[in-house]
Each structure stands twice: as C-alpha cells, then as structure tokens.
C-alpha cells in the first residue's frame, strides 16, 4: 500500500517534470524553427556586407554592428551606474522613507513597458538634451531600461556577502569604503555579472526603445560616431518581416537575421560567463 504522502510526491514530481519538459520543448521548437529556416541564408557575405537592392539581397553587416554598439554602449552606462547605486542603497542608505521611495521607484521602473522608455528617451535625450536620434540616445535609453535589473542583481549579490567578512575587516581598523572595495565587491562581482548577462539579451532584442531614439530603417553605411543613426538587428528583422519591399522574397534573410541575433547574444553571454568564472576563481573558496 502506498501512503498518501508517497502518492502526492509522485504526482508533484510528475507535474514538475512535465512543466520543465514543456519549457525545454518550446525553446527547442523555436530554436529548430529559426535554425532550419535561417542557416541557408548565412554565409560570409551575409554577415560582412551591406544590404543591397532595397534590402532584398546582400548582408546585414550594419545591423550587426549597430546591435554590438548598443550592447557595449548601454552596458558601459548601466553597469557602473547600477553597481554604484546598488552599493549606496545596500551599504550606506539608512532605511527610511526616502530609501523606501527609491526602492519602490526601481521596482516600478522594472515593470515599465519598453515603449515608455522609448518615448522618454525621445523626449529627454533626442529632443530636450538635443543629442538627436543616435547611438548615444539609444544606448542611454536602453541603459535606463536595464538599470533596475542590474541594480537588483547587484543588491542581491552584495547582500549574500557574509557579515563575517565585513566585521573581520572593520575590526582590523579598515574603513567602510576600503572594506567594500577589497572584501565585499570581489565576492559580489560574479553575482553582478549575472545581472549583466540577463541584461545583454534584453538590450540586443529590444525594438521599441531604439525605434524612437535612433534606429534607422536603412543606412547604406556604418555609423561614423556615437551621434550617428544606426541599424540594429531586431528592428531590421521587424522591417523585413512587415514593411519590406518584398516580404516573401526576404524570408530567408529574416530567419538568418534572427539566427544571427541569437548567436550574438549567445557569444556575448559566453564572454560574460568567462569573465564571471575568472572572478569566481579569484576569490578563493
């Protein structure tokens, strides 16, 4: 005879397995769909040349470069800003109404639709600060978009550093800032990089914010400075699939573009994971 508890456990396990299986299945189906339709479009020319003949032929080089610029630009802005404010909020800010309000604002920021960020970027960076539709405006907008994720991940990472380390350092007559810099941060950096990894896919894939702040429908050249407009993979994909000159004819290009976008996110994540494990090894556990 099985007891009730044992039967319940079997049912629970089965449900967990089914849920996990479904998630994996969906991911595999999407991947298979994109890879099987997209791989034929990919060759050296596709990733190194300009679009030709009203984007029905040629490559997507400017869109690849545009997306890379956005990843680098928004990370360069959001990482330091996010990590520094996380340090302030976790280590220095005294609990109270102001801190509570800031925490609430960050949580709300995380739930704000990306098109709202796009409109804010348009109003603030493109128009008010007069930066214009550009890589810089779009990077700033995307940086704001991922800031809550980076702040939260950094806060979590700081909170997991044991109090013992801090006490040990403070008791040696080390200032709070030196303690944070030399003991707390090295232990927290891997967790902070995890936040960055989550953000990279977001930056590479977002369309609405860049659409309003600098992404171009078509540019026959690479951007020449951070003040230039740019092409980007997700918007290029959207254009090809919805408003291109010949949607049916460019199907392989669309799948190829999607596949390249996935590969870029994968590669950048691999770099981040490598950096993370470097820091993990540096702290001797």
């Amino acid at each position: 005879m099985f007891s009730n508890a044992k039967i319940n456990e079997k049912i629970a396990f089965a449900l967990l397995k089914i849920a996990t299986g479904m998630v994996v299945a969906f991911v595999l189906v999407i991947l298979y769909y994109i890879v099987s339709n997209g791989y034929s479009a990919i060759n050296l020319e596709f990733i190194t040349s300009m679009p030709r003949n009203r984007m029905t032929e040629g490559g997507i080089f400017p869109a690849i470069m545009g997306t890379m610029y956005l990843i680098v630009g928004s990370m360069a802005i959001a990482m330091p800003l996010g990590i520094l404010s996380a340090i302030y909020l976790t280590e220095y800010a005294k609990p109270g109404k102001t801190t509570w309000a800031i925490e609430m604002a960050i949580s709300n920021l995380a739930g704000t639709p990306s098109v709202v960020f796009g409109l804010f970027g348009l109003a603030m960076f493109v128009k008010y600060l007069n930066i214009g539709a550009s890589i810089l405006s779009a990077s700033l907008t995307l940086a704001l978009l991922i800031l809550p994720v980076i702040i939260r991940a950094s806060q979590e990472a700081l909170l997991t550093v044991p109090k013992d380390y801090r006490d040990a350092s403070l008791a040696l007559g080390v200032t709070k800032w030196e303690t944070i810099r030399r003991v707390v941060l090295p232990s927290a950096i891997p967790g902070m990089i995890t936040g960055a990894i989550l953000s990279i896919g977001r930056v590479a894939g977002e369309t609405a914010p860049i659409l309003l702040t600098g992404a171009a429908y078509f540019l026959p050249r690479l951007p020449d400075s951070v003040y230039s407009q740019f092409m980007a993979l997700p918007y290029h994909l959207y254009v090809l699939a919805t408003s291109g000159t010949n949607i049916a004819q460019t199907r392989p290009l669309q799948y190829g573009t999607a596949l390249i976008l996935l590969l870029i996110v994968l590669c950048v994540n691999l770099v981040a994971v490598t950096i993370r494990s470097h820091y993990k090894n540096k702290i001797k556990r």
Partner: peptide, 21 residues
C-alpha cells in the same frame, strides 16, 4: 574609530578568514 580598531583588535566567535590566500 578606524584608528581605535587598529589599536584594539578582535577575534570573533566563528572563524572568519577572508576568501583569499
């Protein structure tokens, strides 16, 4: 206070070495 803690050291209940060599 920082200077005081240099002069008055402390060893804690639970050994708390840093995750370093």
């Amino acid at each position: 206070v920082v200077d005081l803690r240099k002069r008055v050291g402390m060893v804690f209940q639970k050994p708390n070495p840093f995750p370093m060599s």
